[in-house]
């Protein structure tokens, strides 16, 4: 970063900065719950796991959630047992608690996250605009096997990506990994065919429409449930494919968006850098 300073000074300075930071962190770690001391019941996540924010909110309204010293009495919130495959009409129906936080309890974060990725993709296109596409003069062209193989693999990968984001509320995964999987399939097509170029306008339309769909789902919540990004669908029975209300809709939108976005970034990155 500092280009005019001599190498030695720079290294000493860097070691100094890094050293101070690390020493500070380790002094702080002694005061932090770690390993065995971590207790989820001391955090707000307790209600996300119990799917009982409603109960906690009632206590909050009555003024019994916090005590006089403003310490939250999280363990006083009673627990209603949840049985997989039986409990229905919970406040949030996703079996995967992480998903329920990502899309429902803290859904606004995720809208921002989708925006960050969208802006990064747009930024890549803005920065690399007007570059000549690289027509790779590979010494060895991709073989026939590669060409056919990537196309078959693409179909399978595409279906798998869709599977991952549709089951986001039941299994690990969701919109972001699903979209990334689809984009990796498209990356395979780039490798398998010389000069392959996806339909750029199509990707843009896909990207825009799925992004708008996300915001519109939020606005439907605002109109129907009086709150932005509120769930407006029944939550069903925990563990069913058709459960968890709007989570599946949002994950479909996110999956399509991330898939088309990452493909567009890959496409934009393949430019001529005039190496010779």
């Amino acid at each position: 970063m500092m280009s005019d300073t001599p190498e030695m000074v720079k290294k000493v300075f860097a070691i100094f900065v890094v050293g101070i930071l690390i020493i500070g962190f380790f002094m702080v770690f002694t005061q932090m719950p770690k390993g065995n001391e971590v207790n989820v019941n001391n955090t707000v996540s307790r209600f996300y796991v119990m799917k009982d924010v409603d109960h906690a909110t009632q206590m909050l309204d009555k003024g019994t959630y916090f005590n006089k010293d403003m310490v939250p009495l999280r363990n006083d919130v009673p627990y209603t047992p949840i049985t997989f495959g039986k409990s229905s009409n919970l406040e949030d129906g996703a079996a995967n608690v992480v998903t329920s936080i990502v899309v429902d309890y803290r859904g606004f974060d995720t809208l921002g996250e989708v925006t960050v990725l969208f802006l990064a993709a747009s930024g890549v296109m803005l920065v690399l605009h007007g570059e000549k596409r690289k027509i790779p003069k590979k010494k060895i062209a991709p073989s026939e096997i590669m060409y056919v193989g990537t196309r078959i693999a693409f179909a399978v990968i595409f279906l798998f990506g869709i599977y991952v984001f549709i089951h986001g509320h039941l299994t690990p995964g969701g919109g972001f990994p699903g979209g990334a999987i689809i984009a990796s399939g498209i990356l395979g097509l780039f490798l398998g065919r010389q000069g392959y170029s996806p339909n750029k306008a199509g990707l843009t339309v896909f990207e825009s429409l799925s992004g708008m769909a996300y915001v519109i789902i939020g606005i439907i919540g605002l109109v129907g449930e009086k709150s932005f990004l509120a769930n407006f669908l029944p939550t069903g029975t925990i563990g069913d494919l058709f459960s968890a209300g709007f989570i599946a809709l949002i994950y479909i939108a996110i999956g399509m968006k991330v898939g088309s976005e990452l493909s567009a970034v890959t496409n934009a990155m393949i430019v001529d850098t005039e190496e010779d």
């Binding site: 989820v40 996300y48 796991v49 363990n75 997989f84 079996a95 608690v97 992480v98 690990p172």
Partner: peptide, 24 residues
């Protein structure tokens, strides 16, 4: 932190799963 047929996250009113919030 995923409910499955065999995975119980809450035992005796006490959450035993990993904290899902940092994971999100």
């Amino acid at each position: 932190p995923i409910y499955t047929a065999t995975n119980n996250l809450v035992v005796n009113g006490h959450v035993i799963s990993a904290d899902p919030l940092p994971q999100s």
